[in-house]
Amino acid sequence: MTFRPLLLACLLGVSFASPVLAAPQAPAKPAASSTVAKKSTKKSATKSTPAKTKRKAVRPSRGRRVAQRAAGLVGASLARHRVPDDCSGLVRLAYQSVGVELLSHGTRPGENAASAMYRRAQAKGALHRKTPQPGDIIFFRETYDRNRDGLRNDGVTHVGVIESVARDGTVVFVHRGGKGVGRARMNLRHAGHQGAGGRVLNDYIRKAEQGERARLTSELFVGYASATRL
């Protein structure tokens, strides 16, 4: 065969040859590692979500703790406690519950415990006549004839602990009276014993004696001492 026919035969073979088709490729599956990564990311995001914080119990103020202690002694005897079984003993015991000894400064010759507490409050700038807060001390004068001379010259003679104050201004306090530890009321806005509907606003705090009528809390009131400053 000559060169030209051979060349022609080669060219014809290339033209009529069947094209080679590439094998179809299967669609690529997502990598398993990325799925795991997504799951782990969701888990970590869930764990990182801050949990709801519980509200911490708010501790009552010192005054409220004093008031609660005094209220808890209503109807109880003070005889088993290391304080005198009188009005000053009740107030001292209530304040000892918050670590305050009201007679740590001592008493002067001839001075009663109620007067000594008043002197302490005066020295600490705790005296006031504003609307009291629970735990404040309430002071009264001439609730009895302490020196038995028939005169009104005894000064501060009675103390109690404020428990609450009503909207109408009626103050409820705990004290050690003639019938033991109990509650009494005082309302400086109304001078009488009772208000509308017969509601007691001012209790009697000094009994009738020596030809004088009984006296109300509003009549013998002296002032308050702030629990936060004592």
Score class of each variant (00 low, 15 high):
G177E: 09
H128D: 03
N147D: 15
V171D: 00
F173Q: 05
E142D: 14
K179G: 15
R167Q: 15
S164A: 14
V159E: 02
T157D: 00
H128T: 11
K130R: 14
I162P: 03
Q194R: 13
R141M: 10
A166S: 15
G169S: 00
R185D: 02
G135Y: 01
I162G: 07
L151T: 14
V156W: 06
A121K: 02
A121G: 11
G180C: 03
F173Y: 12
T170K: 13
A191I: 00
V165D: 02
A166E: 15
L188R: 14
G177T: 13
T143D: 01
H158D: 01
G178E: 09
G155M: 07
K124R: 14
R167I: 01
K124G: 02
G177N: 13
R120E: 14
R167Y: 07
P134M: 02
K130A: 15
R176F: 05
G160Q: 03
D136K: 01
G178N: 12
G178L: 11
E163S: 13
R129A: 13
G155L: 10
R129Y: 07
K179T: 15
V181K: 08
G150N: 04
D145E: 04
G178R: 14
I162C: 07
D136L: 02
G195Y: 07
V159Y: 05
F140P: 01
D154R: 12
A121T: 04
M186Y: 03
E142C: 07
I138N: 00
R146H: 12
R176M: 11
H193E: 13
H158W: 06
Q194V: 12
A191T: 09
Q122V: 09
G150R: 01
E142M: 07
H128F: 10
K130F: 09
H190A: 14
D154W: 10
T131P: 15
F173C: 00
G135M: 00
I137A: 04
A184F: 03
G180T: 05
T170I: 08
G177K: 07
A121R: 02
R148C: 00
G169A: 01
E142T: 12
H158E: 06
F140G: 02
V161H: 01
A123L: 10
L127E: 03
P134K: 02
D154S: 09
R152V: 11
D154V: 11
H175R: 07
A166K: 14
T170D: 05
A123P: 13
G135V: 01
A123E: 12
K130E: 14
A123W: 03
V172E: 07
A123I: 06
A121V: 06
G178M: 01
L151C: 10
I138L: 05
